[in-house]
Structures are given as C-alpha cells and as structure tokens.
Simulated assay, not measured.
Amino acid sequence: MKVLAVNGSPRKNRNTATLLEAALEGATSVGAQTELVHLRDLNGKGCASCFACKLKDGRFVGRCALRDDLSPVLQRAMESDVVILGSPIYLGGVTAAAKAFLERLVFPCLSYDTPDRTCFEGRIATGFVYAMGMPHDRVEAAGYPHLFEENKRYLELLGGPSEYVISADNYQFDDYARYAASNFDEPHKAAVRAERFPQELQAARTMGARLCKQAE
C-alpha cells in the first residue's frame, strides 16, 4: 500500500503540513508506505492546455505530457494507492501550487468521450486537507463547501473514493503582537489551537487510515 501526500502550502511545518503528517500517521498505522512532498521545493507549472492528453491514440492519454519538476511526482501519484493533497485557503481558493498540481493530476484523466467523464483505468483513493483562518461558523456561509465538493468530484475521476478534512480558525503567527493583525483575537485563536486543532488532526489520521482500507 503506497500513500503519497502533497503539500501545497509554502510552509513546511505549519497547519497544512501538520495535518498531512497526521493523515500519513493514520496510513502508517494500517501498514502503508508513505511519502510527503512539498511543492514549494519544486519548479512546476499548471496545465498548459496543450491537449496532448486528449490526442486519439496519443502517447499521453491519462497522463500529463509536460516535463518539469512535477512530472516525477505525478508519476508516483499515478502509481500510488492513495493520494492526499493539502492546501491553505488563499483568496478564496487553494494555493497556486496546489491548483497547478491538481490540474496536472486530474485533467489528463478527464474524458471528453465517455459518459462517466474519466479515461483513467486505475483506482486511486484520494483525500484533501484544507487549512484556513476563517472561523468555523462562517465557512459554509462563505460558500467554501462548493470548492471542497468540486475538488472532491474532480479527484473522483481517479476511480476511487475521495474525502476531505477542514481545519478552520487556524493560529497563523508565532507572535500576533509583531504583525498588523488586529482583526484577529489571539486568545481565541490560541484556544481553538489548543482545543479544536487536535480534533482536526485526529480527523486527518482517521481519514488516512480509512482511505487505505478503502483502497485495498
């Protein structure tokens, strides 16, 4: 059982990365081999709309034709049983790095011919962890469930089940006093970090283990 986690955050040891590490702990607990990749270390681009993946009888049906640092990671993703993505929410969406990887991973599998919309012949279970500063009680009103469900539907083109974990009201700074961030209540953020973030980490662990079981 191979599990690949892909961190779309520019930070390697903060909320998103910690959630991904928890998901991998869950995968490891059921015997999986795991790997964590940080996209900030790689020089890669999003889909170039070259349509090489859509050529009839082409060499790249179901896989991206672009060659850059993302190429070997995408190849390992296609060889994995489970792929788990992670991203903070920036300006209403996932990071540019996470979006680029998602495009390159999913678009080659999106069929313009078949009723089920996929040309991928394998079965990869997928997960997504989202980290965001918005309070939990505002997430739905802000329309974010649409984003989460849309990404879930795209990932389901890889033939397996997909789910996600949301971590909201994140603690963002080591020292709030050093930053122009007076709109945030630091004691409240600290309380959420102490009380709720551990629950979200456990949800990520559970997801990692469950996806492995579903991929068997």
Rank of each mutant, 00 (worst) to 15 (best):
D174P: 06
T114Y: 14
R11E: 08
A65V: 11
Q199L: 14
R104S: 06
Y164L: 02
L157F: 04
F173P: 07
S80T: 08
S9E: 07
A204T: 02
T118I: 05
A48T: 13
L201T: 03
V30I: 12
L91S: 13
E140M: 03
T34P: 02
K45P: 03
Q33R: 15
G122N: 10
Q214W: 15
F101D: 00
T114D: 12
A23W: 03
L42M: 08
L4I: 14
P161C: 06
F51T: 01
V82R: 00
P72E: 05
V61M: 12
Q202R: 14
T28N: 11
G26N: 02
C50Y: 09
E186G: 05
R11A: 04
F60W: 15
F120I: 09
E156Q: 15
A168N: 12
V37L: 07
N170I: 10
G93P: 00
T114S: 15
A52C: 14
S49A: 15
A125S: 13
R67N: 15
Q214M: 15
D57Y: 10
A98C: 12
E25H: 01
V139I: 15
E121N: 11
A48S: 13
N7I: 01
G8F: 02
E195G: 10
S80Y: 05
N151F: 10
C212E: 01
L66K: 12
F120C: 07
H188N: 13
V6T: 02
S111P: 08
E35H: 08
V94A: 11
R205E: 03
F120T: 05
L70N: 06
F101C: 04
G143W: 11
H188C: 09
A23G: 10
G44S: 09
E121A: 15
H136R: 15
Y112S: 14
V106G: 01
R196Y: 12
L147N: 10
E21Y: 04
A97N: 00
K2R: 15
C64M: 06
K213P: 03
D57P: 01
C64A: 08
F101S: 03
L42N: 04
A168D: 13
T95S: 14
N7V: 02
A98P: 00
S87A: 10
L39A: 02
C212D: 04
G46I: 06
A32I: 04
G122W: 03
K56D: 11
N170T: 13
Y154M: 15
E186T: 07
A96E: 08
D81T: 03
G93T: 14
D113A: 15
H38Q: 07
P161G: 06
G31H: 07
Q214D: 13
S80N: 05
R76M: 06
N170A: 06
E103T: 06
Q33Y: 09
V165E: 06
V94W: 08
A215C: 11
F184C: 04
G8Q: 03
R67W: 09
A194L: 08
L157E: 05
V129A: 01
E149Y: 09
G44E: 09
R40M: 11
T118Q: 07
